[in-house]
Design a protein around this nucleic acid. Sequence first.
DNA 1: CAGTGGTCTAGACCACTGG
DNA 2: CAGTGGTCTAGACCACTGC
Lengths: 268, 268
Amino acid sequence: MPANTLPSNDSALGATADQGMVPGPAVTPAFSPLYQQIKALILQSLQSGEWKPSTAIPSEQELAGRYRVSQGTVRKAIDELAAENLVVRRQGKGTFVATHAERHTQYRFLRLVPEGGEQAHEGPAERRIIDCKRTRATADVARALSLRAGDAVLQVRRVLSFAGTPTILEDLWLPGGPFKGLTAERLNSYNGAMYALFETEFGVRMVRAEEKIKAVLPDAEQRGLLQTGAQTPLLSVERTAFTYNDLPMELRRGLYLTDTHYYRNALN
Amino acid sequence: MPANTLPSNDSALGATADQGMVPGPAVTPAFSPLYQQIKALILQSLQSGEWKPSTAIPSEQELAGRYRVSQGTVRKAIDELAAENLVVRRQGKGTFVATHAERHTQYRFLRLVPEGGEQAHEGPAERRIIDCKRTRATADVARALSLRAGDAVLQVRRVLSFAGTPTILEDLWLPGGPFKGLTAERLNSYNGAMYALFETEFGVRMVRAEEKIKAVLPDAEQRGLLQTGAQTPLLSVERTAFTYNDLPMELRRGLYLTDTHYYRNALN
DNA sequence: CAGTGGTCTAGACCACTGG
DNA sequence: CAGTGGTCTAGACCACTGC
């Protein structure tokens, strides 16, 4: 649909580089490429929930028409979104909103893989929720989640096992607002990755994450939950996960047993 | 411009998708996009040393002419090479062969950063070579470097210190052939990152790497070199670094002290 | 100023998917 | 078969660099 018919503008957007054959002011205030502006618009539609995870977004042609730009420009915008894993292109079918709910992308953020088998893991065999309670954010949790100390947060503790052996002990904190109504029962009954549940039940899609890794020795409680000894060093993995707009939505502190697994990383 | 006048071929390359207006056989044997073929050609020139690190490669226009292809196609090829950090684009100047010798990309593969300061590290304050000797590849080293057990390898051991505190203990193995002539003196006298030395002195450019991370406790010798106690767990980081063509050229086993530093990783 | 990479367009055709 | 993303082209103009 025609977005507008404003003069001095060669597309439906403002503040472009003023290319094309329409004459206009040449000041170029804080130049931003057209495709970046289109990307921002698509991003808005994504985070507003206008297009749901795993559904197709409009075709490149349609978006080009809607934004009154060429298909190539829309294409470049979508290229970047695809590179950031926000969207998945499928030739002949369309472009789809990325999701954590599919087999292939289910444990996208989990880098722990079994030592021997060089194939990708298929996810933990067992996920046991130890605890799930409402609390108040401590100073460090608040800082990580961009909250204020004392704000309501949900805290979850769980143990992941591979082939019957407890391997990962995780504590995670979620902002109370967006995750109102999350309970241990709901976590237990859900049959899939946690981030998939966040998507479908709470409309929160994790887009990227940062991890800080250290080596630590477990305390008595941690040893008990992981059924390991005092002399077994563990990987401490502190993850902050973000939704759209770099908004932190989860703090996760994991302890990984690395006698039969290792944390895999690719450096480019 | 007319791409060419050759029969059944719309560019200087063979086996294209046969686009354009030249009629040709429609069998399409193992279709590969033109830009991928151009990318492969540029890659060849890079690994053959035709264009040296930190020098400019020919302009897009010139490459387009050379390969008898449009600039857009060359552009897409270079885009991918830039995304893989093999090449760096600089608007108004040209496209340059990437290098480890510059400040910005010097410690590209080092993920250990200081705990407090959120700024990027500036590299280790001190690099001390403990040992540098020729040996024979053990089975695991041979496997990692695609050699045969018993082949000549160079083994280096060193300690990196930050602000006077030993923090990283590294053992690394290099294939004897490409690194003939590497000595402790040469390593010591070189004032920069090791990968920069590999580039300038041995023509070996590390392009990507994989790391396997575990938590371990140090043995007596390691404790001595890192001046730490028996109860201090360390990050064990085993890195395999590759040149062009996914050829492994270095195996590196690092022990990282993570009381004041952490291993930072970004998940996308 | 010329030369480089960066953006944008318009149109053609190819490869793939599904009805 | 129509519709989608994927490739390729030709040409225009913009932003940036250095002489």
